[in-house]
Design a protein around this nucleic acid. Structure first.
Lengths: 206, 206
DNA sequence: GTCTATAAATAGATAGAC
DNA sequence: GTCTATCTATTTATAGAC
């Protein structure tokens, strides 16, 4: 009797497929227009479903948004989770920068989804920021502080170091139109990896 | 006959005062909720005026937003304009960073107003980005490139250098809630100036 | 110049047939 | 499970009295 129930949400294949369609459409629309700017009409037509059908799968617009944020939260935190206290400090931190930048390149919508939410004061995400996010950062800050104390990297403020990694890498996703407007034809991600590597190598070298 | 008419918009004292009240209220509301999230009701009550009275002074919600963006565009560009080709290169660039950070501290709403607009693809600002902004950046990039060619600063990609200054300084305004959530009680602007100075000093020193 | 009342459009959500 | 039709609330904008 192989069935795989009991996992709570997804049941049939068609349900799973439609939930996925909705999540994908919602990501597209929420990341481009923010929560208020997005409409169920937009999301429905992007998903190729009718508006009432959307609300058959999710109880409300808010529920779609919330589910999206919490699903993607893990993806968002993974690169920092991977920072390894046992590895070589400079290598670990540069690899973290590289991962974050690669995520901005490959998943700009996810980055903008969070950016929209946070710029507006994170009304639907504040507890996650003060909980999961802060806990993870505190844990990694302790590692970075040890590295600095042992003279393995330069003595930099560990929290602000992390802010600067977020800021510099996510900028290429969140402010993509501005970056491209200023660069004209040049592709941002051609030069960004080497540039950011240089920034953090110079900063972190003791 | 001293009167000061002919300047086109503001006439009486009361008109000027109400236009200012509306601009201030609109900045507050648009910067917190974005264009779609803001309502005329919010803006009106924030300004202490009735909704129809708002529309006596401005033809539409869009017009308020547009006027706000174009008024603040100059303030936004001024710190970069002040970059002086005749000054000492490192001093000039560090002073630019300091000015931008100070603006994030003193005028976070203005920063978030632009952030909201740009994250969503700058639908009402794209021409400004491709015009005024790109022109100014191109001009200053030429200066930075000269400095690098003359060996007065390290050889860094000038466009990405500017992106990194924007990104690192505006982060403290745009992502303020996140920064504060992670820091717990610590005041971001206590450490940020010294941290950013260190980042750019290390990066730019030849 | 400012207000109350209201029109017109949009958007989130529900009813009920199939 | 999916659709059409519709309800209700919100929101932009206007009319018209004062």
């Amino acid at each position: 009797m192989p069935d795989g129930s009991k996992t709570d949400r997804p049941r049939t294949r068609i349900q799973q497929r439609n939930r996925d369609l909705i999540a994908e459409a919602a990501l597209e629309v929420f990341s481009t227009h923010g929560f208020r700017g997005a409409t169920l009409d937009n999301i429905a037509s992007e998903a190729g479903l009718s508006k009432p059908n959307l609300l058959y799968y999710f109880p409300s617009k808010e529920a779609i948004h919330t589910q999206l944020l919490s699903t993607l939260m893990d993806t968002w935190l993974d690169p920092l989770r991977a920072l390894d206290a046992q590895g070589d400090p400079i290598t670990e931190l540069l690899a973290y920068v590289e991962r974050k930048l690669e995520i901005s390149r490959l998943y700009p919508r996810e980055s903008r989804l969070f950016a929209n939410e946070i710029v507006q004061g994170a009304p639907r995400m504040l507890t996650s920021l003060e909980g999961e996010l802060k806990d993870l950062v505190d844990e990694k800050v302790a590692i970075i502080r040890d590295w600095a104390d042992q003279g393995k990297i330069a003595k930099v403020h560990p929290y602000h170091l992390i802010f600067s990694i977020w800021s510099l890498t996510q900028h290429y996703a969140d402010f993509d139109v501005q970056v491209r407007a200023v660069l004209g034809g040049e592709e941002p991600f051609d030069e960004a990896p080497a540039y950011l590597r240089e920034v953090f190598l110079k900063l972190l070298t003791p």
